Simulated scan of single mutants.
Amino acid sequence: MTKFSRAVLGAALLAVSGFAAAASYPGIVDAKGNSLGGGSAFDTGVFLVAGETFSVTANPADLWDNSGTDPTYVSNADGHAFQMATLDGLTDAIGSLVGEIGNGPLFNVGTNLANVTAGSAGELKLFYFDSDADNNTGFVHVDVSAVPEPTNIALMALALGAFALTRRRKA
């Protein structure tokens, strides 16, 4: 393999390691169907390993409601700061978007959860934070992205190795 082809291979591997982080998974979380209180989880299809970095973004313009009729209870994925509750060990605003990895503890997602490190392995699931799904309406669009750390590290190591081979050894 020539120096030039090793350099090209190294550059290509570095580029691919950067693109591995760009995968995103869109979805729609429904206030009634995906409510913590009477619905089921929105399965994102994203399976994380402990130590992997992920992000979730919810469209802040999308609205959902936990009253059925009262506009006071309409919110985006950040929920109602004036209406807090403790459900399944998490204290958060009613109407907020929350997540769970595998069967781990719930955590707040809101409209933007950026570059968080997964503490455990499993599928990322999302919920509407509410104790009663019966009167919920609306939905939010979400985009989930994960950085596959082991893949990036391996590709980076291969790329650096290819670059190292292009260096001329001094006699």
Rank of each mutant, 00 (worst) to 15 (best):
A11Q: 11
L90T: 07
D92Q: 15
S55W: 12
R168L: 08
R168H: 07
S24D: 11
G102P: 13
R169I: 03
L126F: 03
S17Q: 03
A22C: 03
P150N: 08
V16S: 02
I94C: 08
F19V: 05
A7H: 10
N136D: 09
F82M: 07
G104S: 11
L9Y: 01
T111V: 14
R6F: 11
D30S: 13
G102R: 02
S5Y: 08
A118Y: 06
G102E: 14
N66L: 10
S120H: 00
A11D: 06
A164D: 01
K125F: 04
S40E: 11
L48I: 07
G33I: 05
R167V: 11
G51Q: 00
L14F: 14
N112T: 02
V74A: 08
T2N: 13
F127V: 10
V8I: 14
P105G: 15
A157N: 01
L113G: 01
D62V: 11
D70V: 04
N135C: 01
T44N: 14
L165N: 00
A118R: 08
P60L: 02
L48H: 08
G95E: 09
G10W: 12
A58P: 09
A12E: 00
M84E: 03
L155D: 02
I28N: 12
T166V: 14
M84W: 00
A20N: 01
T151C: 00
T53H: 04
R169V: 13
K3E: 13
T91P: 09
G89D: 10
A85W: 03
G18H: 03
V49Y: 06
D130Y: 04
P105Q: 14
S96A: 15
V140Y: 06
P26Y: 10
Y128S: 09
N34P: 03
Q83R: 02
S75F: 03
L36R: 02
G89A: 09
H141K: 13
A154R: 14
T117H: 00
M156T: 15
Y73T: 07
S145H: 05
D132K: 04
G102F: 13
D130W: 05
G27H: 06
L90Y: 06
G104W: 04
A22Q: 06
N34T: 10
A154I: 15
Y25E: 05
D92R: 13
R168E: 10
A133N: 12
L158I: 01
V147N: 14
A171W: 06
V16T: 12
L155T: 09
A154N: 07
L87I: 15
I28T: 15
S5M: 08
D132F: 13
T72Y: 15
A93M: 12
S24G: 07
T57D: 02
D130G: 05
D88G: 08
N34V: 03
A58C: 11
R6E: 11
N115M: 02
L158W: 02
T117L: 05
S145G: 10
T151A: 15
T111Q: 11
